[in-house]
């Protein structure tokens, strides 16, 4: 392969108008993703899958833009209070985007680690907002977990971070593998430059996620009981 060819394979030239059209679609899909999540009564959020798809195909910064546009959109049509969470959406995009660029999508294990990194960094951005602005509340069932940690004698921010990381891991691992499945249904010109592992059966992914999350939860409980005692 000559160098020019290699370059072509690496980064397809996607027309600006295509990007300008894809980003709002992804932003709208973020919102529809959360509606599907609610309709199927899942314990996740699935509100960043559009971001993930753009970050993986077009790159981290386009993904971040999709994340930003999503939250501006939500602010206009639903509630302006969601605006600060644009930051989380953008951070998620950057981790997904650079992760895939740095070959973290090449194997199942790597992709799993990448999605946990996404979860970690999104939590790291979200928790200060939750604690400083919303007094530690998220308005979801995860708050019960936070309350349990508080009851165990933990400080508020530790409790919020602990419950949020569990929720975030669950959500981001599943989102990553859903995004992978979506990439399989997209036009080749968008995905041909990506080095990605074969689609995995979602059931397996869910069992693995459950294992990881229950494991971490158990670890946290043991840690907190010992500290309290």
């Amino acid at each position: 392969m000559t160098t020019t060819e290699a370059k072509l394979v690496k980064r397809p030239r996607i027309p600006t108008t295509y990007i300008v059209a894809l980003i709002p679609v992804a932003a709208a899909l973020n919102i529809v993703g959360s509606t599907i999540n609610a309709a199927l009564r899942l314990p996740t959020f699935l509100d960043m899958i559009g971001t993930a798809v753009v970050a993986m195909t077009l790159g981290p910064w386009w993904g971040a833009l999709a994340g930003l546009i999503t939250n501006i959109g939500i602010a206009i049509i639903r509630n302006p209070v969601s605006l600060p969470f644009a930051l989380c959406n953008m951070v998620g995009a950057l981790v997904w985007g650079y992760g895939i660029r740095w070959k973290m999508g090449k194997s199942f294990g790597r992709l799993l680690i990448l999605s946990m990194f996404v979860g970690f960094f999104v939590s790291l951005t979200a928790v200060p907002i939750y604690v400083l602005v919303f007094g530690g509340a998220t308005g979801h069932f995860g708050d019960m977990l936070t309350a349990t940690f508080v009851a165990m004698g933990q400080r508020l921010w530790v409790s919020v971070f602990s419950s949020n990381i569990l929720v975030s891991f669950t959500d981001k691992i599943i989102s990553t593998f859903v995004a992978l499945a979506i990439l399989g249904a997209l036009p080749k010109e968008l995905t041909s430059h990506l080095e990605l592992v074969e689609q995995k059966n979602l059931k397996t992914v869910i069992w693995i996620t459950l294992g990881i999350v229950v494991g971490i939860a158990a670890l946290l409980f043991i840690m907190f009981t010992n500290i309290a005692g």
Binding site: P24, I69, I72, G73
Partner: peptide
């Protein structure tokens, strides 16, 4: 892009 997003939803 913001306008389009809102119209697409």
């Amino acid at each position: 892009m913001v306008t389009t997003t809102i119209q697409l939803i």
